[in-house]
Design a binder for these strands. Structure first.
Lengths: 341, 341
DNA sequence: TCAATTTTGAGGCACGTACCTCAAAAAGTC
DNA sequence: GACTTTTTGAGGTACGTGCCTCAAAATTGA
């Protein structure tokens, strides 16, 4: 009635403990015939490996690196905190997490960092970066060296990364579109703002946003995306210009991370009351703006889930174990003033 | 540089392994003086107990019972599935979960079940039930027997339960109020439906709902709550009556679980297009209604989180370990057609 | 000071798995 | 049948902690 152990399997299969061990750990030197015998015994007894004992025995330590954009951005700060938190939790059993800051706009620096990791005995890498040819090559090299690699938040589909951990950005854009359609005035113009339309996330969000507005709310007209290029002064300038020149403006969708300059410009234009503004990611800035009714809603992904999921996936890859997709799917969360976490 | 073990602590503190063990596991027979010596050594070396090894050694098995309403309700079915899922996951290390069905409306049957658990060597109980004097007493007795008890989904504040695992229902009601105010027509009447207003959840949700509508959307008038008493025929009847007699009706907030009869009645009245309908909990019924635009939004709590959190908390109580409130806070999730999980 | 009591040390076994060695058995080859 | 090669068995040690015993040491009380 107790949980079966390897000993039980050995007895049941009529083989020795060593053979059971070889089968369970996929070591060579066992005949196909015998492998099947052991496996059916495992199935019949319902044996499951005791991970406590396994981890204890195999003194394996996993070293995972999280490469996140440097700078004082609130979102990446939150991510870094989440990595540190996750490193302390029970899930981080025998894994060692380390954050490495990378300059977002310097592919060569990213490549240098990726190379240095390989030599430092890192088992897996989670990276948040834009896809450039240099980064692509560096990731391909990491994979050749046998490291596990997952893309974080922003996918790198043309690299041999093992997995993507983040939300479906087309669906996120569709969610924003639906919220905008339901929240905003019946008709008018919608402004879409982002740091750069070269970012894959922005492209996908815009795609989803447009498709919902076009099909469900045709009376709302979406203006061409405005790019701020991470420059607060530029953001301030272009936003003021649009507000001044577009009396029909009824909503703003901020797809990127630079929400502080946007909100400042809007606040000073005194147009916030009649505008429906949607943004991404919950940060101190967006939280405050939700509370003061300046933002109608924030679409976010739970950074804690993000990091823990990346960790579990990296581990699964290292152990050559299957990944439970259902558990790893990151939710698109809608946060309003009243359901702030 | 490696992780310190009990051996390191013993050397550092200048005591024996047995003494370190006695201190770490709070066993008696150690002088205050020595306890301090060991504790400072632990702090200095940054020792953390290796849970894998500890669990392996101490063959402790936790037996937790989940008492959930019987019947074919979709929400409690989802919960039961979540319990089974959680039982298989890695978090359920050395814990044994079992679902016990209880008749929601028979306090004496619940009491009988609670008593039978005590004799069956159960270490902890998670219970979803309405608070009645009988249930109160039975829980008090369980606590006296030294079992851990958490209230699930619906709080039991006047019992000695150790914890409540669920959402803040006032905030959930407020979230619904905000969604209703933003989604519905500028003015009109709002219908609120539930199984029973004697349920604490319904009371709190209504409270939050009303307060947001009153302060932020005074042009929406909330009608008195309608109770269905879990009776589809009655639900059908009263809902049709309200729809027929209230031409100003613009929104419906379904606070309880009986969404199927509500949606059927609405569908047949052909009023769904002009009504904003909000409901709780994602089930096959509400999912389908979201997809077909019959429901504007669903407010849900992740049943997986709910169950895992209850499990972690029960364990923490059994081990007399602190609970990390931040991790255990259950999110109020807003689900629209486009961010369905 | 002596006896009674409390505190500490030394050591061992157990948990279930990983991983190693060495020899023996079985299978395959000519 | 003699040979090589592959497969299997038996047994061991290790991981870090929990929990036990028994004796030795330290402390306390009278």
């Amino acid at each position: 009635m107790n949980k079966p152990t390897v000993h039980d399997i050995a007895r049941e299969a009529g083989v020795s403990l060593a053979t059971v061990d070889r089968v369970l750990n996929a070591r060579p030197g066992v005949r196909e015939n015998t492998i099947v015998k052991v496996q059916t015994a495992v199935a019949r007894l319902g044996y499951v490996r005791d991970t406590s004992a396994a981890n204890l025995s195999r003194q394996r330590q996993y070293k995972f690196a999280f490469l996140l954009p440097d700078g004082a951005g609130q979102f990446s700060t939150t991510l870094k905190t989440a990595v540190r938190e996750a490193g302390k939790s029970q899930i981080a059993d025998r894994v060692q997490l380390k954050v490495h800051e990378i300059p977002a706009h310097d592919p060569h620096a990213i490549v240098r960092k990726l190379r240095s990791l390989a030599s430092r005995g890192v088992d897996g890498v989670a990276i948040l970066a834009q896809e450039t040819p240099q980064v692509r090559d560096a990731i391909a090299r990491l994979k050749q060296d046998g490291r596990a690699v997952v893309a974080l938040v922003s996918d790198l589909p043309n690299t041999p990364r093992d997995n993507f951990v983040g939300i479906d950005n087309i669906a996120a854009g569709r969610t924003a579109g639906l919220l905008m359609g339901r929240f905003a005035a019946r008709s008018g113009e919608i402004l879409v703002v982002t740091e750069s339309m070269r970012s894959r996330n922005s492209l996908e969000r815009r795609l989803g946003f447009d498709s919902v507005l076009a099909s469900d709310f045709p009376s709302l007209k979406v203006l061409p995306s405005i790019e701020t290029f991470d420059d607060p002064a530029r953001a301030d300038h272009v936003i003021r210009e649009v507000i001044a020149s577009r009396p029909e403006l009824t909503g703003i969708y901020s797809m990127g991370l630079g929400n502080a300059p946007l909100l400042t410009a809007l606040r000073e234009s005194h147009q916030l009351e009649r505008l429906t503004v949607l943004a991404h990611e919950l940060t101190p800035t967006t939280r405050q703006a939700l509370i003061s009714n300046e933002l109608a809603a924030v679409i976010m992904q739970d950074t804690g889930h993000l990091v823990r999921s990346a960790m579990r996936i990296l581990r699964a890859i290292c152990d050559r174990q299957p990944i439970f997709d259902a558990q790893e799917r990151i939710r698109i969360e809608v946060i309003l003033r009243e359901n702030l976490p």
